[in-house]
């Protein structure tokens, strides 16, 4: 992997992070904590406090903002069934299914 070039605003992010850590120690989230919370918020409603923490971090960190959207899109994609025709089943396998159904009807309920 090529070394990750920090985003152009990284120094600003750093300064802001330090500042917010100082001013609002309970409210500032690290990028890692933010990402974990983003995942959890897909499974349960976030509390008001969590909403606030998410909003604050989102406002400052472009990477996390984009990453959150990507994770949400992946979730969206998994939830919606895809269009198009289902692939066919091998004829031999289909024949075995028919056999099993035949046996089941013959043997009664």
């Amino acid at each position: 992997m090529t070394p990750f070039r920090p985003p152009e605003t990284r120094w600003r992010y750093r300064v802001l992070e330090r500042l917010l850590l100082l001013l609002m120690p309970g409210i500032w989230l690290s990028c890692q904590a933010f990402t974990r919370l983003v995942s959890e918020a897909l499974d349960r409603p976030a509390t008001r406090r969590e909403h606030g923490r998410l909003r604050l971090h989102r406002a400052i960190c472009r990477l996390c903002r984009d990453n959150e959207r990507h994770l949400q899109r992946i979730s969206l994609l998994a939830r919606q069934p895809g269009p198009g025709e289902p692939p066919p089943i091998a004829p031999a396998r289909l024949e075995r299914m028919r056999q099993a159904m035949d046996d089941a009807t013959r043997n009664g309920k």
Partner: peptide, 20 residues
Amino acid sequence: WFLPEGSWRLDPTAGLHALD
């Protein structure tokens, strides 16, 4: 993906324009 203090070590968004 993260540095010990919890900020990104690698870019989590690189190459994912299709998801934008």
